[in-house]
Design a binder for these strands. Sequence first.
DNA 1: CCTGAGTGTTGTAAATACTGAACGCTGTTG
DNA 2: CAACAGCGTTCAGTATTTACAACACTCAGG
Lengths: 182, 182
Amino acid sequence: MDVGERLQAIRKLKGLSQRELAKRAGVTNSTISMIEKNSVSPSISSLRKVLSGIPMSMVEFFSVELEPESPTQIVYKAHELIDISDGAVTMKLVGKSHPSRAIAFLNEIYPPGADTGEEMLTHEGEETGIVLEGRLELVVGHETFLLEAGDSYYFESSRPHRFRNPFDEPARLISAATPANF
Amino acid sequence: MDVGERLQAIRKLKGLSQRELAKRAGVTNSTISMIEKNSVSPSISSLRKVLSGIPMSMVEFFSVELEPESPTQIVYKAHELIDISDGAVTMKLVGKSHPSRAIAFLNEIYPPGADTGEEMLTHEGEETGIVLEGRLELVVGHETFLLEAGDSYYFESSRPHRFRNPFDEPARLISAATPANF
DNA sequence: CCTGAGTGTTGTAAATACTGAACGCTGTTG
DNA sequence: CAACAGCGTTCAGTATTTACAACACTCAGG
């Protein structure tokens, strides 16, 4: 990932010159020049200063999609879903070839005993889903929930969470998460 | 925004010591120490090196939510889903009470003859979904697709689109769209 | 109590990033 | 053409960050 290229692209998109951005940001134009040429790797504090002149947050800076793209597949037959299974859990992702996918939309099957692991998951974003068949145990923070067919959930992915199927029948789940981390 | 504090919080969440993380990241433990104490502002390249030992992306690092939270409903029984049906199409939304919902996650039923209308839909964002039962016709731009049970789709919502069920049996669909426009 | 392995902190020397003042270039104005 | 104002680049010196090595501390066995 090329910080210099990103900065230059964003700066030009905003119609700023190096000197103009430098002045707004409170750094020198040479700093901008060197960052854009990747002849230095700026410190967090100076990159933040630079971005404040745009203005733009760190998150935005690193998540901006630079180059738009190509014609992509729209409909996926069941067998075309990409399999990103993890351990016992079967997970199939819709929209594999989609550039800059914003949603991770998954068809998941938890066989009896399947578990996302004793260590709780935490990551950015939000996630939601609905159980189609079977039953599933969901732990979020200190709360434990029993999900039955037809039940759904929605929570911030930053809250520690875990999915588990302690029952005898497989559980089938359709889920969506954003941003797409896969 | 406090880089040191974030790093420390994340590192501890992952159960890593400064030395352990340093080794994985290919930096020295003193670097980690000083970053966490905010006695330095690391360069982008070195912060990225550090994060690679977790592993975690820049975007994740800067967007992680450090302090939880508010008590909001997490699990929804089937009858608790909010009904936002539009015409003949039944749509039930997961996560009604969620603050700042990023995903519109819907359980939709298209009875025979149901149609989103002759005028094509266009709006910002992306949408995806999977057909569980029945068959459905999807038009995106100038292309028409036949979706059968198990088939899924993913496209930019800015492309004109339309859903229609010209068949004899109801079609059931789970869909996700972002941003959540409901 | 001592030892060894773990933790985080700190001093110094080497490496890297930043500033300030040049430079060469282009386009505009008188 | 000359003068000017803008552009991005480069260089030398200064400021900051990093590695390496030592330090103090805690905890678990022997």
